[in-house]
Amino acid sequence: MTQAGTSTWAPERQPHSPASDTEEPAPHAGAPVLNNPVLNNAVPVRHPGRWISAVVILGLVALMLQSMVTNPNFRWEIVGTYILDVKVVQGMGWTLLLTVASMAIAVVLAILLAVMRQSDNPIFRWSSWLWVWFFRGTPVYTQLVFWGLLAVLYPKISAGVPFGPELFDLSTSSIITPIAAAILGLALNESAYLAEIFRAGLKSVDKGQTEAAEALGMSDAKIMWRIILPQAMRIIVPPTGNETIGMLKTTSLVLAVPFTLDLTFATNALANRTYQPIPLLIVAAIWYLVITSLLMVGQHYLEAYYGKGVDSGQAAVAVNPAAARAAAAVAAPQQSPGTDLPKEEAK
């Protein structure tokens, strides 16, 4: 195993220090080295089609911008008046709250549902399947109306033994307020979709990962939480980001509950009052775009976090050779320096 190139400084290789530099090509003493090669300064292929399409598209964009500026029906001054209106900004806040709260609940439920779906326990598998079947199979609008009407169906909620004595009861409308109904309705519906995304993510992780962790004696919960889920997140984050942006706009359906403070309802109300629907639609669209852009930034960082070690594959971790050598020396003080260490010098 020992190569001629290394034997000059490590004449006697320790039996317990396997050669590891054999994977890197050793310089050939006899090979001629070209120090000044003539670079192939080739003429690149021309792409006239790109220039033509650029001109066409830029022209169309210019036309659109021109009409937006010159067409008085856009009423940009009204957009300006209402973009920071208290009702609009509050509506944006409620919309954001609905999105974040319902997605948070949905993610927790989805992890649970996806894990239950792969469980050895058939009851868990079936209940998870049934949940997804039901909440994915009925319109979110219907579900929102239903949660809004829960107080009609069950005027009070009580806890007790089935067919036995009651322990306490509460009026439903005091618990299921419009905001609670809206969040619940959105979250339960979304959890069914996310459960399938999470299931796909968990399935995408190689079975060997579970086996390796099992062979180390890890518990099922630890294997899921520390080994499988972090790897699955790489697959789960992009479609979940998609769902979050979808949810941002689905919140406009909470009118069905009825919950009447969100961005769409607020801008609609202003539009009806001022008889100016177009500028207020633009106001709503601008705010939705702003939030979407912020969510996309967040998604970018999440993807980078869960992609570490895989997506950043060759961006080699800068190992400070001196520090690593010191660490190794601490770890193996019985070894004479120089027998093992320099071979693994960072490339």
């Binding site: 317990h16 220090s17 396997p18 050669a19 590891s20 570490k308 070690g309 895989v310 950043s312 594959g313 060759q314 080699a316 971790v317 190992v319 050779p321 690593a324 050598r325 660490a327 190794a328 601490v330 770890a331 193996a332 070894q335 093992d340 260490l341 071979k343 693994e344 010098e345 960072a346």
Partner: peptide, 22 residues
Amino acid sequence: TQALELLDRVGLAQRANHYPAQ
């Protein structure tokens, strides 16, 4: 400490902070 010892034993102390893909 134990992990660095073991990595040293298999000749990879200098690769401790590398990801498997590297």
